[in-house]
């Protein structure tokens, strides 16, 4: 296995967090991992992204130029990263903020209304977890149980009252993509 994933969205949508969570979970399962963020003033109000590698073999390059999967939580991220996704790659789209008709035909898009679903669950803040759940649902990468176990270790203690909500959101995204596969 050699997963090379880009997760992108507005600063504040929590893409760095789900990237960290996946990386941490990969490490927990004994895989080789790396996490590389975009950094600098670009983050201020603009888009933020991180590149996550999870592999059986040592990670040669942490720079992801040809991702095997992409999570696009907003339109600029979709525009930027759907282009470089490899043929046959999975594209998890937050369809509440990415409203596009034409998507490359050689990739597998999964439209998830992550914001709406997150609000239904109780907080828009967990839209990121729904997207990550969706990614796990289509790509595997690590088991969702590992990710759920990792939650308390990655999420700051002052948000631990939201652990259950995060877990629900992960499962929600995971379930949603099963029907789309």
């Amino acid at each position: 296995m050699n997963h090379r994933i880009i997760m992108a969205g507005f600063g504040g949508q929590g893409v760095m967090l789900i990237g960290t969570l996946l990386t941490y979970s990969g490490m927990r399962e004994g895989k080789k991992v790396s996490w590389l963020p975009s950094y600098g003033p670009e983050m201020r109000g603009g888009t933020a992204n991180c590149a996550v590698c999870v592999s059986d073999r040592p990670i040669a390059s942490p720079v992801v130029t040809e991702p095997s999967a992409v999570i696009a939580m907003n339109l600029p991220s979709f525009d930027k990263f759907s282009k470089i996704l490899v043929t046959g790659g999975s594209l998890i789209i937050n369809s509440n903020l990415v409203n596009v008709e034409n998507i490359r035909e050689d990739i597998k898009p999964y439209r998830i209304p992550a914001n709406d679903e997150a609000v239904n669950l109780g907080s828009e803040r967990v839209a990121n977890m729904i997207c990550l759940g969706g990614l796990l649902g289509v790509e595997g990468i690590v088991s969702i149980d590992t990710v759920i176990e990792a939650l308390p270790e990655v999420i700051q203690e002052r948000y631990h009252h939201l652990l259950d909500l995060n877990e629900e959101a992960l499962r929600c995204g995971y379930e949603m993509v099963q029907e789309m596969k």
Partner: peptide, 10 residues
């Protein structure tokens, strides 16, 4: 370089 500084690895 910025990559070493900013990336996370085990």
């Amino acid at each position: 370089d910025g990559m070493i500084g900013q990336m996370m690895e085990p």
